[in-house]
Design a protein around this nucleic acid. Sequence first.
DNA 1: AAGACGGGGTG
DNA 2: CACCCAGTCTT
Length: 346
Amino acid sequence: MNNFSKILIDWYSEHKRELPWRESTDPYIIWISEIILQQTRVVQGYDYFMRFINRFPDVKTLAEAEEDEVMKYWQGLGYYSRARNLHTAARSMNGAFPKTYPEVLALKGVGEYTAAAICSFAYDMPYAVVDGNVYRVLSRYLGIETPIDSTEGKKLFSVLAGEMMDKSRPAVYNQAIMDFGALQCTPQTPVCLFCPLADSCIALSKGLVMKLPVKQHKTKTTNRYLNYVYAHTNTYTFINKRTGDDIWKNLFELPLIETVESVTEEEFLALPDFTKLFASGETPVVHSVCRDVKHVLSHRVLYANFYEVNLPEDTLSFSSFQKVRTEELGQYAVPRLIHAFLEKYV
DNA sequence: AAGACGGGGTG
DNA sequence: CACCCAGTCTT
């Protein structure tokens, strides 16, 4: 075993985090935890994992569930394609989790990182994980300035990760390097003063720690303007399921009119897309509930306005939307933005 | 090769 | 505000 992996594993034995999915070698448990943890911090995903496993303890249970319920268990976590893919993958398994790397990799929503994680943690196969932590630890330790989001960089780090791995203990090694990245070799203020790898870290000796890893990516954000209509009777509320390739696919929301620019209340009330929601003869009685609610996504900034429309019990308006009992709204998976509105005003 | 996809934490 | 998080899929 090389010195790098020995130091890492020694460090891990003293500093490892106790996490429920580490108590198991059930590939299903590992799989769920890994999907939840994609682009998601442990503290953020922890409760979701516990709830999810409690409701869907095995492949069969998940495969037999309705997608809408799976989405509900994912509500608020973000990157909802993970939940859809999870469900699709469960149904593709025929009751048994696949046992080879190529089969695991072929699962919907499972890429190279997750396949390596599952196969090493569950089966102790020698596949090196390459996640954000590994990019950071290796780029610093080896002093590599190749951008990690370039094709060349991805290939290079994949090779290096395999070379640095202790192939006699892939499961422990993979956990060790990721915990090391998460707790010691952190993005902002790494603990270089007390680092067990300080003697041989290239970035530290060259003063490159804060410059690594290099990313060439620059994401530009754009604005979107959402006008929601909380249309309801005394007992029912109108909702809509988002379909199509856009944010929040397969989640529910209130009737929405999106505009290219921000619109005032007067402008909104005159919008044909709004007025046409009302059956002829029914006069819109609308009041603005809240405006310019800012909701930030990673590459979008959403500005939302909410309008309330009170309708008679036998209304013919909003006929293109789903009419659900207001007290049953809670069983529908909704985006954070909608959930916050519902909590506050409904 | 570049974007899209959520939401939250950190400095 | 900028960057990052146990990444993957689509164009």
